[in-house]
Nucleic acid binder design. Structure first.
Lengths: 142, 142
DNA sequence: CAGCATCCTTCACGATACTG
DNA sequence: CAGTATCGTGAAGGATGCTG
């Protein structure tokens, strides 16, 4: 099974459109490139979650970072924050329509990472090997 | 015109596959999320470039950062580095096949950023507005 | 429970100077 | 030209303690 993802050619990214778009792309990558952002989005892709659920299921994240990550995503309109003023309080987070829309290209990139992990790993080993040997350099002048 | 991009469902990214993939996705986003990485990839998408060309055309980047960005991309196998030991020296950078492959999902995400920039901007303004007002809070208890 | 406040460490990025 | 070396800075992330 194949999930098709399309995007308009008119939105093609070149050196030209890059200047025109200003820092838009870098901004998005900066946001999405946060250490934990992608995991939060993946979690919320499966449905709304409470703060404590996210905290528990995303192993290793601190509550401070989770809070700021969610706040940033809220600012950009990717998630909603619904407070239920009970005791104890309850806060539910969910993806907005904008957040859902982002999933397509983001998951495409994630899938690429998973599918091509071996190629990257191989490239890293090859690079390491190149650095370790370094044979013909001094010998060249003898 | 529409450029279709497809990816296998088998590479779907869920909470499960996320653990299984370890930090792969976060690693890629970390690399690609570097402040200048995307611009370097976009430049090289149009063909091989010399170091000085990249330095000149990517406004604002320092040579130190450009060097390390290119070195990182080389380590992961996204670009090649070809040295011509002339005087003055000449170094050409180009995308590898792996780097070319990455362009698809990366440009899809970039296009999304360009197309949806207004929605994000609107969301930010709405968020700001929400913070500025903050009316029903004390009044609620009177 | 869901945070905010505070302090601390690390590191990406930047500016500058020097070199084969 | 294409780097390396060094120093400085701010922002991101993390640990801990306190609170409505």
């Amino acid at each position: 099974m194949v999930t098709p993802v399309t995007f308009k050619k008119s939105a093609e990214v070149t050196e030209e459109t890059c200047r025109e778009a200003g820092m838009t792309i870098a901004e998005l990558l900066g946001r999405v490139g946060g250490k934990w952002t992608i995991f939060v989005i993946i979690m919320l892709s499966e449905g709304p979650r409470r703060f404590s659920e996210l905290k528990r299921d995303i192993e290793g994240i601190s509550q401070k970072v989770l809070t700021s990550t969610l706040r940033d995503l809220e600012k950009d309109g990717f998630v909603t924050r619904k407070v239920t003023p009970s005791i104890p309080p309850r806060v539910d987070y969910a993806l907005t329509e904008l957040g859902q829309d982002l999933r397509g290209p983001l998951m495409a990139l994630s899938s690429w990472a998973v599918v091509n992990r071996n190629r990257v790993a191989a490239a890293r080993e090859a690079f390491e090997a190149r650095q370790t040997e370094e044979p013909a350099k001094i010998a060249y002048f003898r």
